[in-house]
């Protein structure tokens, strides 16, 4: 169980605000776990508590089954990039990695290895103050990989990167997970994780909203809805509503139907003689699913509040 990051009942309060509350999830080996939530949801706080930088008020965070602060060679257990800009601008990139290797008790050759791995070879002798965002990101990833750890954490790794950089990081994350590492990636945009994550941990206002696989989430969000394209929109809506479906107009020649399977819709429309040009299963995007999820959570809280005065 070396390559797991496990969070149990974590809570952290900053003054009057509860940043994280009763949060539990696990990032498993061989998977990219997306850690998603809007800005200020408590993602960075959670990552800092996993690394032992912030002290949780309750609960625990374990890396490979042990608290981070008890690890003797922590860089070989968990690599993390919390903040790519956290480099002294007057220091050369290679020197930054060098002191980190010393501090982590790692062999000196690792510095050149990670420089090679992240494609920094030509920039390693330059001062970090002159680095572009993309290069800082690479330097941060190089630092995370220094100990060749079985578990990795990245806080907003693609934030502000160009498309080329985003593609590179996605590929890197996938290949790291494919080697059997646990990879935890936080983001405030679900779209950034589309096609990149195997599993999603969604939080809002410091609480867990969903802990699910991407496939399950999409299926749930799609909710068996069907998209229908027809020129006779009014007639189609009347027919389907009479059959018990929930019908919403989705454009000039399109309706979304919920509550009836596709075969039944085709049969109904054909029976009533309503012309249509296409019927397709609705496939929600990850972003839509995320919006749906957070909205549901808000509604649930509101209802719960009414029931318990």
């Amino acid at each position: 169980m070396d390559a797991t990051i496990e969070v149990r009942g974590l809570r952290k309060r900053y003054g009057p605000t509860l940043a994280v509350d009763a949060l539990s999830f696990t990032a498993r080996p061989g998977q990219v776990t997306g850690f998603v939530g809007p800005n200020g949801a408590g993602k960075s706080t959670t990552l800092r508590m996993i690394m032992g930088l912030d002290r949780p008020d309750a609960g625990s965070a374990l890396v490979g089954g042990r608290p981070y602060r008890s690890l003797r060679t922590p860089l070989c257990r968990l690599g993390a990039m919390l903040d790519a800009s956290a480099v002294h601008p007057a220091r050369r990139a290679r020197d930054h990695l060098r002191w980190l290797a010393h501090a982590g008790g790692l062999p000196r050759r690792r510095v050149e290895e990670v420089i090679e791995l992240t494609g920094l070879a030509s920039a390693a002798g330059r001062r970090a103050g002159g680095f572009s965002l993309g290069m800082r990101q690479r330097l941060g990833i190089a630092a995370a990989l220094l100990g060749d750890p079985p578990a990795l954490m990245f806080d907003e790794p693609v934030n502000g990167l160009d498309p080329e950089g985003i593609t590179w990081i996605r590929g890197l994350l996938r290949s790291l997970a494919a080697e059997g590492r646990a990879v935890l990636v936080s983001s405030h945009l679900m779209s950034e994780l589309e096609g990149g994550a195997d599993r999603l941990v969604v939080i809002g206002r410091g609480r867990l909203i969903a802990d699910t696989s991407v496939a399950d989430l999409l299926e749930a969000a799609s909710g068996g809805r069907v998209e229908l394209r027809t020129a006779e929109r009014q007639e189609a809506m009347t027919v389907l509503a009479r059959a018990g479906a929930t019908v919403t107009a989705a454009g000039p020649g399109a309706v979304t139907v919920a509550g009836l399977p596709a075969e039944r819709i085709i049969a109904l429309l054909t029976g009533e003689g309503v012309a249509f040009s296409g019927v397709s299963e609705h496939r929600a995007s990850l972003e839509e699913a995320y919006m749906e999820l957070t909205r549901d959570a808000v509604e649930f809280r509101a209802v719960a509040g009414r029931e318990a005065p």
Partner: peptide, 13 residues
């Protein structure tokens, strides 16, 4: 999945 093991763990001091 078989957990990944750090290749430098053994050398770390």
């Amino acid at each position: 999945a078989t957990s990944y093991r750090s290749t430098v763990q053994a050398e770390a001091r």
